[in-house]
Amino acid sequence: MKKDLLGIGDLTRDEIYRVLDTAVAMREIGERPIKKVPTLRGKTVVNLFYEASTRTRTSFEIAEKRLSADTLNIAVSTSSVQKGETLADTAMNLEAMSPDMIVLRHASSGACHLLSRICKSRIINAGDGMHEHPTQALLDAFTIRQHKKTIEGLKVAIVGDLLHSRVLRSNVLLLTKLGAEVWVSGPPTLVPRGIQQLGVKVSTSVEAAIADADVIMMLRIQQERMQGAYFPSLREYFQLFGMTRERVRLARPDVIIMHPGPMNRGVEIASDVADGPHSVILEQVANGVAVRMAVLYLLAGGVEDEAAA
């Protein structure tokens, strides 16, 4: 693996499979009564979060602790960022304390690339602006694989705010790399220009996108998008794109419904779908820990360890 995980583009097909395979073993650790292994003992991991996050930060922290790393959480409200320190300065100061890895969540696309240029520590992108969220895509792939055995040849429909979604970008890169047929759907105001060139099919008809789909992945709709005149009302959005039981019937009978969270019930997804038999939303959360353990392990030198063994 490369030094950092900044985006799915950093991973080859084989490396993606290595992460997914390693995560199987990591998941098993989470099912033991003593959920801890000494793998990352003596390694320091900094979770540097410039954006609010419950799921991702907790997931990383649990993953780090299960691997016995020394973890340190820096949240924006408590750090010197409030005093006007630049990201570059924060990075240099952290670097001076020699952490082994930095997990970064930031509102600016490319913030991880800036950090990567400054730091010798390995950087894991935990979401940068509208760019990428690679560990989310990896845990999504892990979840799909659990249910469908393989990703190649599956029809995956991704529905929602495509424009502002880093989850979309990482998933498109990963799923197309692994041979899935990816459809994306959302109002034309929320479709990024040129996205077809990334190898996906675009449809403004959610019905067409999810017809006979093996996987439906819903993306969060942010309320503030209405101010940007992307769509007229949440009510109309739900009517046109909301995932209802009726719509789910258009997909394959064994379709799985995914959502990276946090969900807006009644906006992009109906509660009876979110909590219904096709939903794997909580499994995604559970798998997030295992996949992040795998990423941490492999980046920390798991490969070299194997070679030495």
Partner: peptide
């Protein structure tokens, strides 16, 4: 610029 690059890099576009 609003186009494939901005879309892929997650940057807000200007047409």
């Amino acid at each position: 610029h609003e186009g494939l690059q901005a879309s892929a890099l997650g940057l807000k576009g200007i047409p």
